[in-house]
Design a binder for these strands. Structure first.
Length: 462
DNA sequence: TTTTGAGTTGTTCGA
DNA sequence: GTCGAACAACTCAAA
């Protein structure tokens, strides 16, 4: 008997190590698998352009890897998927669990709309599916370190076997894949599963060993750059962890860096777990007492926000970060913390506003990691930074971009300013000849605003 | 149940 | 210049 199964791709755009795809193949038996991607108008909003461009590029590569068999449909999945099932006489629909708030609602609606046909969920985008790691009393963790310990102890499955040839179904009606938008002013990473594996191998072979210290240097290219691929599932964290375990056994000197990198994966899983248990935490303060915080508003605040978004605050490290975001859809994590601290604690604006701007421009924009990262800086998250921890943009620059290479790369007005000892690249207002042409004056004084922030935080302490 | 130790990522000040 | 303490209590996790 010839069965038809549907593999509904969402954020798992790969063929390797994909348990849901294997389940779809097994369900098809001697029959065929229909790979489908749904252009969901809810997710296809005008904002988030860079991320959607990257997604389209990933879909193009996925389609090529499947010899052009990807079926594209447009509309509400709760309508589109049941229609496709009826059209093809499919016996089952296969997915990897989407554990975000919208994904859960959507999948519940699709499952209900499918009536008789089974919606089979296999695996998730995480090494340990959110909700699985629990304290002894059954409650979820709220602090990272114990979570990470329990998460490591829980362990994870080995990568799923590479599927042999999948019997894709031919001649299914499909919309053309929308073209990947071309923009001269935006340089996105190479897309797709192959590019993900190349990035991973380059990192594994050259950067893991020194990762625990070098990852903090935005002037050097020493991070994994895997976040966009992990976001869309071009590669699965389980693949990385298995690879790393083998590597660590072979070469002990990698151990420290590897441990730190695994911790970064654990952060991703921790935040997904927090969002799973508290879906409203994408918007709501995890520490309700911070809701009373006084934020700045009015024309000056608006002008400051615009200066922040455009990288024209007059603080080189902040400006370099914000301009990197616009130019690449990506920002080094240390600089993300710095610019977030600057918006919240120097410009006294609400974290939600910065989080929205990040989501609009980040190629790796992930609701759980982004929102909880912002809440961490704001001091409103689980396990948050102490409120008196205020990043100093000059010190952060001197410490993590000692020669000023990062600043000069993104802020051309400062390209002739020297860094290093005695250089003024991180405080150009100290230059004897004044600010270089075109570079803005500081919009605020950090020392003053730090005091204001400490007062405002003290006011909401009780 | 009570107690104890710990908690990503910083800065400033004074010795 | 280098170093340690203070910043402020509070919640969480586990023994």
């Amino acid at each position: 008997m010839s069965e038809v199964s549907i593999m509904w791709f969402r954020r798992d755009l790969r063929l390797g190590d994909n348990p849901a795809l294997l389940a779809a193949r097994d369900a098809a038996g001697d029959g065929a698998v229909v790979p489908v991607f749904v252009l969901d108008p809810v997710l296809w909003k005008p904002s988030g352009g860079p991320r959607r461009a990257f997604l389209l590029d990933c879909l193009k590569h996925l389609d090529e890897a499947m010899a052009g068999h990807l079926v594209v449909r447009r509309g509400d999945p709760a309508t589109v998927i049941p229609e496709l099932v009826a059209e093809l006489g499919a016996n089952s629909v296969h997915i990897a669990a989407d554990t975000g708030p919208y994904g859960r609602r959507r999948d519940a609606a699709v499952g209900a709309a499918l009536k008789g046909t089974e919606l089979v969920s296999t695996g998730s985008a995480y090494a340990v599916t959110p909700g699985r790691v629990k304290k002894a009393d059954g409650e979820p963790y709220r602090v990272f370190t114990p979570f990470a310990r329990a998460w490591r102890a829980h362990g994870w499955r080995l990568p799923a076997t590479i599927p042999g040839a999948i019997p894709w179904m031919s001649n299914v009606d499909s919309e053309p894949l929308p073209p990947v938008p071309e923009r001269d002013d935006l340089k996105l990473p190479a897309a797709g599963e192959g590019a993900a594996h190349m990035s991973w191998k380059a990192f594994r072979d050259n950067k893991v060993a020194d990762y625990s210290t070098e990852r903090n240097r935005p002037d050097l290219d020493r991070t994994s750059r895997l976040s966009p691929y992990l976001h869309f599932g071009c590669i699965h964290p389980r693949t990385l962890l298995a690879d790393l375990a083998a590597l660590t056994d072979l070469a002990r000197q990698n151990g420290r860096g590897a441990h730190t990198f695994v911790n970064e994966i654990a952060w991703r899983e921790f935040y997904a777990d927090v969002l799973w248990h508290q879906p409203d935490s994408a918007r709501d303060y995890l520490q309700p007492r911070l809701k009373k915080m006084a934020y700045s508003s009015g024309p000056t605040a608006e002008a400051n926000f615009t200066a922040w978004t455009q990288g024209r605050t007059g603080y080189p490290m902040v400006d370099a970060g914000m301009r990197q975001l616009l130019a690449e859809g990506w920002m080094h994590n240390r600089v993300r913390m710095l610019v977030a601290s600057f918006l919240i604690k120097d410009l006294h604006q609400e974290w939600t506003r910065g989080a929205r701007w990040f989501m609009r421009h980040l190629v790796d924009g992930d609701l759980a990691s982004n929102q909880h990262g912002w809440q961490w800086v704001a001091g409103s998250g689980t396990d948050a930074a102490p409120y008196y921890r205020v990043f100093n943009p000059v010190l952060q620059g001197k410490k993590f971009d000692p020669d000023g290479d990062y600043v000069r790369r993104y802020v051309p007005e400062l390209r002739n300013v020297e860094g290093g000892k005695g250089g003024r690249i991180h405080e150009p207002w100290e230059l004897p000849d004044g600010l270089p042409a075109g570079y803005p004056e500081r919009i605020v004084d950090h020392a003053d605003e730090r005091e204001v922030a400490l007062e405002r935080y003290a006011a909401v302490r009780d």
